[in-house]
Design a protein around this nucleic acid. Structure first.
Lengths: 217, 217
DNA sequence: AAAATAACTGACCGGCTGGTCATTTAATCC
DNA sequence: GGATTAAATGACCAGCCGGTCAGTTATTTT
């Protein structure tokens, strides 16, 4: 009957695609985890979204939690690697670097499912300590360390006031994390609010508060 | 054998205490919801913590979700009522009012289970829309409205720069909410950080950034 | 082309948990 | 102090879900 069916229009019920599966699974999981949260996401749904059966899921990942772990690792780690090299090679004022970093990060996260990860991690941290530890070590502390170095430099150069570096770093990050968390939790019930306005005013206020008095750029 | 047993040392297996139950249940639920999250908290645990059986729980609340709702209503609403009257009667500089409000709120939330409520609400908002709406209307918007009025006044008096009021209000709240969320999610895996230092620096930076240039108090 | 391999499937299972209700027991009434 | 009321109990149930595995099918090997 059917001779020489092209592979792309195969009538098979399914095809073997060992290499492509893990990434497809991880992408499906991210979308669903962000949409419904970790606990509320059913493995059957992840399978369906990834275009496979539930059994196949377990050929590639031992458990739901392992998928969660893989999601973080797959999407976040490469981004941070990238930012680290950017900072290493940067030439210019501290203020400009902070602006560039925040805007760059913002541009590649906001309006993507990745913006849902902070809320996801925070919501599930209590029930999945391994995941929390991994995120803390591989995301939070690396980002924080970068920002601390930058602000430290700014203080040494006399651009900034001599404040407590770890604390001020957290204060730089807090509103940025916060709006992402908000976007994936209470925003549907809130008045609309423009993200760019928020971020720009945050950087403005933050730098204005941090810079030495009377200094303008 | 045992005649005239004092009520306080009654040998009964249990006692009828219709009036006291709801509050005890709501308090037990708050503690557990904050510790483990809503989904991960078992009704049997809530009952045990409240010193009753699971069946009794359902004499006082129709469902788990209703308890959640009652928790918010019971603990948060009275606090906001209080703050509203405080603000209404306030005489003094805008800056001092903001400081007093933040510190007051901080003092009565931080180091209590109430600090866990924001994380709780955010985590469960997606799965419990009614709860999210209730929290938004009865907590977030009321608090925000108060702060907007205050900052508005500061701008009109010439104390503050002429910034976008709704946005700057969110920026005032964000780090405060954020540290509470953090405390109940990733803090166990993070380096220790003093809350007072954080809040004080936030207010300092925020007001410094918001005040008109060259103005000192 | 048939035998061997391994990717894939989906019905099934065990354990768990929100919610129920027939029964028990404290408190009240007469 | 016996009858009545209603607060409280806890064994039980229905249904859901993460995870399994015996069997199926696409692909490769010989």
């Amino acid at each position: 009957m059917t001779l020489t069916i092209p592979k792309s229009r195969c009538h098979c019920r399914w095809r073997r695609r060992k290499e492509a599966r893990p990434e497809e699974i991880v992408e499906a999981a991210l979308a669903l985890f962000v949409e419904k949260g970790f606990s509320a996401t059913r493995m059957a749904e992840v399978a369906k979204q990834a275009g496979i059966s539930k059994g196949t899921l377990y050929l590639y990942f031992d458990s739901k939690e392992k998928i969660f772990h893989a999601v973080i690792q797959h999407f976040i780690t490469p981004m941070i690697d990238e930012v680290e090299t950017l900072v290493k090679n940067y030439q210019g004022s501290t203020e400009a670097l902070i602006k560039q970093l925040v805007h760059g990060w913002w541009g590649s996260i906001w309006n993507t499912p990745l913006s849902g990860i902070p809320k996801l991690v925070i919501s599930e941290a209590g029930n999945f300590p391994d995941m929390a530890r991994f995120y803390m070590e591989n995301v939070v502390k690396r980002v924080r360390s970068l920002l601390e170095q930058i602000i430290q430099t700014g203080v040494q150069r006399g651009e900034f006031r001599d404040v407590d570096i770890p604390t001020v770093t957290r204060l730089l990050m807090a509103p940025i994390i916060q709006i992402n968390i908000w976007a994936h939790s209470l925003r549907p019930y809130d008045d609309p609010q423009d993200g760019d306005t928020y971020i720009n005013l945050h950087i403005d206020l933050f730098l204005q508060g941090l810079k030495k008095h009377g200094q303008n750029t």
